[in-house]
Design a binder for these strands. Structure first.
Lengths: 349, 349
DNA sequence: TTAAGAACAGTAAACGTTTACAAATCACGA
DNA sequence: TCGTGATTTGTAAACGTTTACTGTTCTTAA
């Protein structure tokens, strides 16, 4: 009945345990557990005594002990390229909130922009009892894929959606979104469109956008005009890329920037060069971050339903864990937000 | 020696346990534990057998069992107002990275902008074995303070620094930063300065900035001109506030916006009203987010060393847990980044 | 009054790990 | 050859829970 005497590992336990509550209430630990977890199964009087004792010492059942016994941790972990990025943090935020609302908790870890060595980074997450793993972007690490399959650890690729994917994926389709954007420009009359991209190394988003752009150009029998620009996190120097494009392809009437920050820097440089936006050059960004609307002229972008994606990913994982229903893929629609940075091309005007 | 027979809680354990490794290597679980944790204490031949067995089945020691036995989880949790916010996510990111580098792992939870009912939100974090709690902003929940003191849970207030604080605080001083900003404007010759703030309800940052502004005005015997504007996350409508200020206080030559997004929206409205920045009105933001430099004119702001603050907070907490040294407070300097949105006042020019 | 069944409470085992202690083995000098 | 001490390995207990099983008490009907 009493807490088994033992050489304490620590001088004294800092948090009260179920034994402390049991002693205070004068019942067995089993009764405490029952009173707290399935109140109906213990007599009213005892139950109240237990609850009072528990409250008086701020007792919270230790999830570690509970997890060990139940073999459930209720932990779902997320790996994303960078947390300090409005694109990703919006999705991560929705994930964390959804987890919390459903009684789960989540570790968050950054992976950088290279998904080819995820396993080592994910190890600690798995050790700590991660029951499900949500990873942003395409998963390129075969060891991780093998491990998850072998040990039945649910794995979900989120943020980007992939038509062909080895694992379930929930997100938006960068390829389609780019086609959508180009089509809109075509409809307005643009036929000479260039693209400025950040590095596509290990970045499935840029890769898909570039692939879409190349495909479209191939269909039209045009040489794709693509310039790359160095991106240092949220800063980009699109200026140099813009100058190269205007020099080598002065016929360009519309410019797709694969990230909003690239577009911002291009805008500044354009103004310096005396190129007016949108009269002389139409400009688009991508990923509709809030600032896009505040720029002058406001920036046309592709809006990504970050919040929806995050919630869907978290919910899917929770459902998988609770019902055992296999994870499914899901594609979210993007929307081109037409703003003042885009107009009909100058030749047509 | 053999794994004790028992009715399995689950049909089959998905992750291999130390018993599986022991059986495969033909040794006791104690030897496995030693071979993996203190290799020197086991004979080379056995050690190799154990390691081989462990590797072959991708064995990772379960942190849940380990935590229960060791009474250490190596988990440090962070609560911040909003994850999808460049201000906070930069700090949170630095925290997470520092934790990971040091063998820790972190839960992240959002608290909204009200720190008065933190305890209930923190409960699950504590249950799950949080060894230290980092909370952004001033901690207003007495229950949480009491709990942490009573149960010796290290508690750290991060992001904002407070001169007088019940708990250790690591961050920057909004009061001082505001004074710094106003002084800079004074030096340039501005004497009629107004402020636009977001809601200060439960927001210690806005509170400190407003307090500093009021104090300065009081010292000069001026009535402080402060307008509030509604902020919906990253969008703000500073336009209306600007109009009110220009109408009631046309003598204003400089305007401090308590968040960059406010400044952005003010800039757009100013342009519409034909007020030129900085010739007619100097404008500042706060929290130097990357976009501030990209606007036209580029925005003068106060740079906050987010990364440093995050790393310092995480390191302090880790040191507290590992050496027992009490947590100390630490104030980080901010820096006014003078950009094109600020110039000498028109009257002086 | 008593037997039977229902309702409730307690005992003990188990989850996966580490580690004190005991036991076994080994090396080596007397 | 044997004793001693050092080295290595195994046994078992403990960390904080939950829960199957058992035992006790209470209710109620004969």
């Amino acid at each position: 009945m009493a807490k088994p005497k033992s050489q304490a590992i620590q001088a004294r336990r800092i948090r009260p345990t179920i034994h402390d509550v049991a002693k205070a209430a004068g019942v067995s630990i089993a009764t405490v557990s029952r009173a707290l977890n399935s109140p109906d199964s213990v007599r009213k009087e005892l139950r109240e005594r237990v609850v009072a004792a528990a409250d008086s010492m701020d007792y919270m059942a230790d999830s570690v002990g509970k997890a060990l016994r139940r073999q459930r941790t209720q932990i779902i972990s997320t790996m994303l390229p960078r947390l300090a990025d409005p694109l990703f943090s919006a999705v991560a935020s929705a994930i964390q909130e959804t987890l919390e609302e459903n009684g789960y908790l989540g570790f968050v870890q950054t992976s950088g922009f290279d998904n080819s060595n995820l396993f080592d980074r994910a190890k600690r997450l798995i050790e700590h009892g991660t029951e499900g793993l949500i990873i942003f972007g395409r998963i390129d690490d075969q060891r991780l894929l093998d491990y998850c399959r072998a040990h039945q650890l649910p794995l979900l690729s989120a943020y980007s959606y992939f038509e062909k994917s080895e694992v379930p994926t929930i997100g938006f389709d960068n390829y389609l979104a780019t086609r959508q954007l180009v089509e809109m420009l075509h409809t307005l009359g643009h036929s000479r469109i260039a693209m400025i991209s950040g590095s596509d190394k290990g970045n499935d988003r840029q890769q898909s956008r570039i692939r879409a752009f190349r495909d479209i150009n191939a269909e039209l029998g045009q040489e794709p005009v693509i310039e790359f620009t160095h991106m240092d996190f949220d800063m980009a120097d699109g200026g140099a890329a813009l100058r190269r494009i205007m020099e080598n392809h002065p016929e360009t009437t519309a410019l797709i920037c694969n990230r909003c920050v690239i577009a911002f820097s291009v805008m500044v440089e354009a103004r310096r060069l005396g190129i007016t936006v949108p009269e002389h050059l139409s400009l688009t960004g991508f990923d509709d971050i809030d600032y896009a609307a505040l720029f002058d002229p406001s920036l046309t972008t592709v809006a990504v339903p970050s919040e929806k994606i995050g919630r869907a990913a978290a919910k899917a994982m929770i459902a998988r864990l609770e019902t055992g229903a296999p994870l499914g893929s899901r594609r979210f629609e993007t929307e081109v937000i037409l703003r003042r940075s885009v107009a009909r091309p100058r030749t047509t005007a």
